[in-house]
Design a protein around this nucleic acid. Structure first.
Length: 261
DNA sequence: AAGCGATGTTCAT
DNA sequence: TGAACCTCGCTTA
């Protein structure tokens, strides 16, 4: 289940296929027209912006958003795809096939559509973007920082796990209004996002707790690799973690490490 | 076998 | 503010 790092990781994996010709189909049928439109074209570009993946095929981009349940996986070009595959792209020159399952979005975008999408997204910590715009949005808003972080137009790529972990790392309570967040806290939030998301892109999962001495990082269980998300107790101070709905998702906070004032 | 939640978003009310 | 949607895996029976 993908936050921004998963899409950037996917983009990194797919990018070497640039230049290859595609055979595109929609076994499930719901992207039949789109598959026909890109069939036999060459993949020209692969880019991730926040949680959005854009595959350039000539004049149109395929726009993929995995949503909550979507995934992409690789298999053998000779394998018969399962019926639920929305888009299957076979790259014969690379002897590989890529399958898209259960996306919330899979559509063709014109250049204008692409521009419209990108212009509304906030800066992306994984693209080396300048955070100034995000800082201004937050400083000027009375909405809770926990809501603002999930707003893709404020910062692109942050999901519920990153929200919880980054606010905790920086000692910022999710319910504090954006305009109460101090400059140093804004910088901390952005720098922590960059660091955690870079690492998550490399490792394929969001692990924020450092490995103990002598413990191989690979052996850290995902649920134990986080300070607060879905934890019963804060992994820094041991206090009970409070959890409540905020901005349509469940927020988590340690009221000792993240004072409301 | 059935139900529910999940790292997400959009649309309807 | 809430429901719908996409799929899968985990829990519950």
């Amino acid at each position: 289940m993908p936050e921004g790092h998963a899409l950037h990781r996917l983009a990194r994996t797919l990018r070497p296929l640039t230049g290859c010709q595609v055979r595109a189909t929609s076994p499930q049928g719901r992207f039949a027209d789109g598959a026909r439109a890109i069939d036999a074209r060459r993949l020209e570009s692969v880019e991730a912006f926040g949680k959005h993946l854009l595959l350039g095929f000539g004049e149109a981009d395929v726009h993929i958003h995995l949503g909550l349940a979507g995934s992409m996986f690789e298999d053998d070009p000779a394998a018969s795809p399962r019926p639920g595959v929305r888009l299957r792209m076979v790259f014969d020159e690379a002897a590989v096939a890529w399958n898209l399952v259960a996306p919330s979005r899979c559509e063709l975008l014109s250049a204008a559509d692409r521009e419209a999408l990108l212009s509304r997204l906030g800066p992306d910590p994984l693209r080396g973007d300048d955070p100034t715009r995000a800082f201004l949005r937050i400083s000027g808003s009375g909405r809770a920082i926990g809501e603002l972080l999930l707003d893709q137009n404020v910062i692109a790529g942050v999901g519920n796990v990153l929200r919880a972990e980054v606010l905790h790392r920086c000692g910022v309570h999710p319910a504090r209004p954006g305009l109460s967040i101090r400059r140093a806290e804004l910088s901390c939030l952005w720098e922590t996002l960059v660091r955690v998301m870079d690492r998550a892109t490399a490792e394929g999962r969001i692990i924020t707790v450092d490995a103990a001495a002598g413990v191989a990082r690979d052996s850290i269980d995902e649920s134990e690799g986080r300070y607060i998300y879905k934890q019963e107790r804060c992994r820094v101070c041991g206090a009970e973690v409070r959890s409540w709905p905020l901005g349509a998702r469940q927020a988590y906070a340690c009221e000792l490490c993240q004072p409301v004032a």
